[in-house]
Design a protein around this nucleic acid. Structure first.
Lengths: 109, 109
DNA sequence: AAGACACTTAGCAGTTAAGCTAAGTAATGA
DNA sequence: TCATTACTTAGCTTAACTGCTAAGTGTCTT
């Protein structure tokens, strides 16, 4: 019952981490550049990056002394799959409800 | 910087709570019916329902001694709005990248 | 009126999360 | 080679989360 969705959604449940995802849509960036716009200690920030990486949202690679972080391809697509499934089920239900309402309406007139 | 997305995403970061959302796509249900399929104490389960309600995913109303829980209309739609925004930005970027790749390809030949 | 039913509240225990500082390692640049 | 840069690791504190049990409140049902 527990799966990668736990870590995907908890990764997004924090404003700092969502801001990082937002930044990364502009392109890959080194840790230090990402850290620059957040007022917190580097080790704390690195923990956030690890959470994003564990959640499958970003990947990173180190070259020399610089670690470059980038959005994981398809991360957001795959992550929304769960929501989309139940969103469709729910919206389908709403559709059936309105068809039912239409039928009742027609029966009455 | 902190907003309702924090509680929306953390509400979904738990398998029990996602299962409840899943159940509710079939229609509204009383607390006891939802609780029946989860092997945990009722107070614990009620806490999960509260997290879902705080996250704007479900609403509930009590009639007599029964509390009926239902999916909040548009909850999943609104909740995916954030992801969709950055998903589009990211996919747009990928599109630009592939156009660039095409151009480079053409330049070389 | 009394018992059963459907939550509800209160409070406790163990675990995980988010922040910090201090100290360490590996790669550059002068 | 020595200092600087760019992380990295270790360890600590506080707060929040997830589970429990025990006891309480209001609503039926008989």
């Amino acid at each position: 019952m527990t799966n990668y969705l736990d870590s995907f959604f908890s990764a997004l449940a924090d404003p700092t981490r969502r801001a990082v995802v937002e930044d990364l849509t502009k392109g890959p960036a080194p840790v230090s550049a990402l850290h620059a716009r957040h007022d917190m200690a580097l080790p704390t920030f690195l923990r956030h990056l690890k959470v994003l990486e564990d959640g499958g949202l970003v990947t990173s690679a180190k070259k020399g002394r610089v670690r470059t972080v980038r959005l994981h391809p398809d991360a957001l697509v795959q992550g929304t799959a769960w929501i989309d499934t139940y969103r469709m089920a729910w919206e389908g239900r709403l559709d059936r409800l309105s068809r039912l309402a239409d039928q009742l309406e027609r029966t009455r007139t």
